[in-house]
């Protein structure tokens, strides 16, 4: 009696287990989906190639830089200028000033977000301080560079791109794992 139910029962149980796995598979799938569509304004977590395409001098794009330390992060953190007008294809460098006013070493991680989300697909970072965690001893300050260009393929409806960085204090995670397991965007 029970024997004839076994194949179907096993199949269904395996389906349930597979769906449990699928729940976790949604995490990387979501990232792929974000990369394809620019959902949620995520930018690539790795460097883009420096060989920029042709410079499109026929139009200009305004880049707005928003930088905010998270409220648990004591650093002062701001861009050198708050906006920049660029031609698509031009490579630019933007410096961010970071200052650690406390008396202890703090590790920071900047999390980028681009709005409108779809524009994230056309915003390429050649070099960025957000690719790695940044250490800063107490009382010190530093300049953190971002090298970027806007893809000339940027659709014309985007005239302004806002790049936001939220800076988090990840000292605890850094100490726990010696900066191995919590690299962002992997």
């Amino acid at each position: 009696m029970a024997l004839r139910h076994k194949p179907l029962t096993v199949k269904l149980a395996v389906t349930a287990l597979a769906m449990f796995g699928f729940g976790f598979a949604l995490v990387p799938l979501y990232d792929v989906f974000c990369d394809l569509t620019g959902l949620n304004g995520k930018t690539a977590a790795t460097a883009a190639s420096a060989e920029a395409a042709m410079i499109d001098t026929s139009r200009q794009v305004v880049i707005e830089f928003v930088a905010r330390p998270n409220k648990q992060m004591p650093w002062v953190f701001k861009p050198e200028v708050s906006r920049m007008t660029v031609h698509p294809g031009e490579i630019h460098i933007m410096n961010y000033l970071a200052e650690n006013p406390t008396g202890r070493m703090i590790v920071g991680q900047a999390v980028p977000s681009v709005s409108p989300g779809q524009a994230a697909l056309y915003f390429h970072k050649i070099e960025c301080f957000c690719f790695t965690q940044q250490q800063l001893a107490g009382g010190k300050n530093m300049l953190m560079p971002l090298q970027f260009y806007v893809d000339p393929a940027l659709p014309s409806q985007f005239s302004t791109i806002t790049l936001s960085y939220t800076l988090y204090d990840v000292t605890n995670a850094w100490q726990d794992s010696s900066a191995v397991s919590t690299q962002p965007g992997e």
Binding site: N70, Q109, V111, T166, A173, D176, S181, T182, G185
Partner: peptide
């Protein structure tokens, strides 16, 4: 356990 599925600071995303 210190994972960051939904924590932006660790590379995660709350909207996920």
């Amino acid at each position: 356990f210190g994972t960051s599925f939904f924590d932006a600071a660790g590379g995660g995303d709350p909207v996920l």
